[in-house]
């Protein structure tokens, strides 16, 4: 198992190199001069030149890339061209926001998707099944930014409820904090749980056909036991696979949702940095994303062994 993990971690290296080098070279192709963007159109040419010199923007690509890696090994991702802070600090500020939103979204997704999928599967063809399938196709089809927009607009029109604009720390005022966070997390969870419902349902249908399920019923186990112990557990492998992909997808959703709900997390930072041509920031965020996504993939693969002890890694 540890050999397996080690090999998987080794495989990470080429991926990270491809990603970061690809991004470094791509970002340099971007039209627009970061010095002009940061200092404004009226800035004197000397100032711009000094700016470029300061952030080493004149060096050849490969030198910039090499210098960036030197920094990464010291835990320094460079300094933001736009924010006048360093990338690591900015990421550390923004991360908790995105993280809280995603964790809550994951909780919503599991709480909504798995039970609904299991019930739809075992009551196949029933009213609940049709309802769940209808809702899940609908959930997959509605863009999150539309749902989010409506979720802010309609309650205001109907009940005069204003979604809080300011975010407070969960330590200062947990209720206010949750009021700010539950809505974006829920909207994110709508799409994700729709996918989970579908895959859970079809996995459950697969498992139900097995002989051991018939045996379990035949030896007189209560349905609740058969469903929770025998069916659900065996149905979880495809669900976990999809779920890993969904969590990664949630990061994509976060980019949009943070924009709508004015949550200053990593997603919003990413979009802003792209608009501002903040190369170091974009590079840092992409490295961060790459590491996070690869880790999630690895964790998903390792989870299989917990669900199904027959699985061995080689």
């Amino acid at each position: 198992m540890s050999a397996y993990i080690f090999r998987r971690l080794l495989l990470l290296i080429p991926v990270i190199i491809i990603v970061t080098f690809g991004v470094t070279s791509l970002m340099r192709l971007v039209p627009g001069d970061p010095a002009t963007l940061a200092l404004g159109q009226q800035a004197r040419e000397e100032d711009r030149e000094a700016f470029r010199e300061k952030y080493h923007l004149n060096d050849p690509l490969i030198v910039q890339y090499g210098r960036w890696w030197q920094g990464v090994f010291r835990g320094d991702l460079g300094s933001s061209v736009r924010h006048r802070t360093d990338v690591t600090t900015e990421l550390r500020h923004r991360m908790p926001i995105t993280l809280q939103m995603l964790v809550m979204a994951v909780i919503f997704t599991v709480a909504l998707g798995v039970p609904a999928g299991v019930i739809a599967g075992i009551r196949r063809g029933g009213a609940f099944d049709y309802g769940a399938r209808l809702l899940s196709v609908g959930g997959l089809s509605m863009p999150s930014f539309w749902l989010g927009t409506l979720a802010i607009t309609l309650p205001f029109l109907w009940f005069g409820y204003s979604y809080p604009t300011e975010r407070v720390s969960i330590l200062d005022d947990p209720l206010k904090n949750l009021e700010k966070f539950w809505l974006p997390s829920f909207i994110l969870a709508v799409g994700a749980s729709a996918g989970v419902v579908r895959i859970t349902r079809s996995a459950v249908l697969d498992v139900l056909r097995n002989d051991f399920v018939r045996t379990a019923y035949a030896k007189g186990l209560r349905e609740r036991v058969v469903v929770t112990r025998h069916v659900t557990r065996n149905a979880m492998i495809p669900v976990v696979t999809l779920f890993g992909l969904q969590i990664i997808g949630l990061f994509g959703g976060a980019v949009i949702i943070e924009t709508i709900f004015n949550l200053r997390g990593v997603g919003l930072l990413f979009v802003e940095s792209i608009f501002n041509r903040d190369y170091p920031m974009v590079q840092g965020i992409i490295l961060f994303f790459a590491v996070v996504f690869m880790t999630i993939n690895l964790l998903v693969d390792l989870t299989y062994a917990f669900i199904d002890p027959r699985i061995r890694y080689s």
Binding site: L11, V15, I18, L26, I248, G249, G253, V282
Partner: peptide, 24 residues
Amino acid sequence: QRIVDTLMAFPLLILALIMIAVVG
């Protein structure tokens, strides 16, 4: 496949965002 691995690690929207940032 290494390139595919790399690209598949990213959600479609984020991938598209990165590329759009470059090509406009």
